[in-house]
């Protein structure tokens, strides 16, 4: 159980904790739109300030809120470098072999990393202030219309949230396995096609076995807590949207509008 990754719900009574989960979810989706629309330094500044305000409202310790960033800085570095070095541009600053460093690439890299960091922190604030059950319930309410065509919305919501959770964890694990097999003499860069599939086995098999093991542990833990994955689960009293929930969604929408129209 100790290896089940972080990003867990922290019970509390802050403003964000009390907000309707659906309002938080809609807020996050609007924030995603605002992040995608952001393109200027001013736009990013606004978003970062806003995240700061959210953090203050959530009552979470600052260290805890940025924990997912500290754990995954390597992941960010890789994303940044991939964008900076492989962006095909007409006017590269520096080229060597297959790499080409360009201004556009650097900007693109910084853009992707900033966006990702903001999304991850925002998502982390949501996960920390809302219990997984509340999130799935909110997803279900949000996507309720889809249920009329027989789509089990709560399961899809669960899959997405768990998957996002696992991305940095598995990225680190793949890197570790790659290194372990390299020391054992594995060569992943075999040029002959016939060897290539075989040379991938030492990497791919452990990656899947370990990922499935994590899935197994998590499924057992969830079932032990009584989760069955059925749509008719009791999800606590349905909270109706209140003034503050509408207010929160409106503020988000305003920020997104400023982002798109002004900055």
């Amino acid at each position: 159980m100790s290896r089940i990754p972080a990003g867990m719900y922290i019970p509390g009574k802050s403003f964000l904790h009390r907000l309707d989960p659906l309002a938080k979810l809609i807020g996050l989706i609007i924030l995603l739109a605002a992040v995608i629309a952001a393109s200027s330094p001013g736009g990013y500044l606004l978003l970062i300030l806003f995240i700061g305000v959210l953090l203050a409202l959530s009552g979470l310790p600052f260290k805890l809120a940025i924990a997912p960033l500290r754990r995954t800085y390597l992941f960010f570095a890789v994303i940044f470098l991939m964008n900076a070095l492989f962006f095909a541009d007409v006017d590269p600053l520096w080229t060597w072999w297959i790499f080409s460093l360009s201004r556009t690439g650097l900007i693109q890299g910084a853009n992707v990393v900033l966006r990702l960091a903001i999304i991850i922190v925002a998502g982390h604030i949501l996960i920390s202030t809302t219990s997984p059950m509340e999130i799935t319930a909110a997803f279900r309410r949000l996507l309720k219309p889809l249920q009329y065509i027989n789509i089990p919305v709560d399961i899809v919501a669960l899959i997405v949230s768990v998957a996002i959770h696992f991305i940095p964890v598995l990225a680190e694990e793949v890197e570790m396995i790659r290194k372990a097999q390299t020391v054992r003499g594995a060569r992943f860069d075999s040029t002959r096609l016939r060897d290539r599939a075989a040379s991938l086995l030492p990497l791919v098999i452990p990656v899947f076995v370990n990922a499935f093991k994590r899935a197994d542990e998590l499924a057992l833990a969830m079932e032990a807590r009584g989760y069955r994955g059925e749509g008719r689960r009791v999800s606590g009293p349905e909270i109706a949207f209140q003034a503050r929930d509408f207010g929160a969604v409106l503020i988000m929408a305003a920020i997104c509008a400023v982002q798109i129209l002004v900055l």
């Binding site: 694990e173 570790m176 396995i177 290194k179 372990a180 097999q181 020391v183 054992r184 003499g185 594995a186 060569r187 086995l201 030492p202 098999i205 452990p206 076995v209 370990n210």
Partner: peptide
Amino acid sequence: SMIFQYPEYQLFETTVEKELAFSLKH
């Protein structure tokens, strides 16, 4: 040679003998 934290994560072969022999492949 190097033994990583949780070295059992690297196992992939069909038999123990092949698993060990993999390290001697080259």
